[in-house]
Amino acid sequence: MSPLEFTLTLLGISVGAGFLGSLGGGVVVVPAVTLLYGIDIRYAIGASIVSVIATSSGAAAAYVKERLTNLRVAMLLELGTTTGAVSGAFIAGIIHSRWLFVIFGLALAFSGVAMLRRSQRRREAVPPDRWADRLRLHGSYFDEVRGREVAYRVTHTRLGLFLMYIAGLISGLLGIGSGVFKVPAMDLGMRIPIKVSSATSNFMIGVTAAASAGVYFVRGDIDPFIAAPVATGVVMGALAGSRVLPRTDSRLLRLVFVLVLLVISVQMVWKGLR
């Protein structure tokens, strides 16, 4: 394969991954690069983390405009995600790459299962939390379905911070956005409404990814020749996807995508253990 063929095919794959981004397509970049081209997984992760920064920073403006993002919660939880991300990126540099394959495979399987599960609305009262009060984390957002401003209270702040450290660690270790771990932590753990959780998670992803990208870059694990087509391709795909996907019935697409994720997950674990 010539370098030109490599660039063009990788660009195509990245556009596809970006297109499925709203379904969690970012997670297929690393498997594609490692399984199809046989490239070192650390270089694949380095390229992927850069594309995560690009898509998150590009999308954040829309969410902030809709006033869905809880900026105070985001800033506070970034303490957890960034320290986690730096730890994860550090660990990725010292463990054997076979374990990166195995952990990646398991994270993919988890993502697949999480996409099928429906989030359940709990009705019981939100337990009071001294930390959330003191840091003034509670907020409100405009609910389009109900047509009015909905106030919400935040709880379990310290648990949230801990879970964000774990989410950041996975993000830094595997080069993924790991929104699939952040959103349930905020939604189920801190009892933040799902829409606010998603927007706030997206807001944090860029800053989180920057923390681990710094480690990868200085370590020399971001190869410009791999990262260039991946970053530009994913952003192009994400732009197209955000226009098309919300208008399609994504249930079947989602099911197919979950099956693909599970197949890739098995391949990654297999490659790691072989």
Partner: peptide
């Protein structure tokens, strides 16, 4: 203070890459 701490972590990441 919270945001400054986040910035500090981000800046430290560039140093950690050299160590790891």
């Amino acid at each position: 203070a919270v945001t400054s701490a986040v910035l500090a972590v981000l800046l430290i990441s560039f140093v950690l890459g050299k160590v790891g």
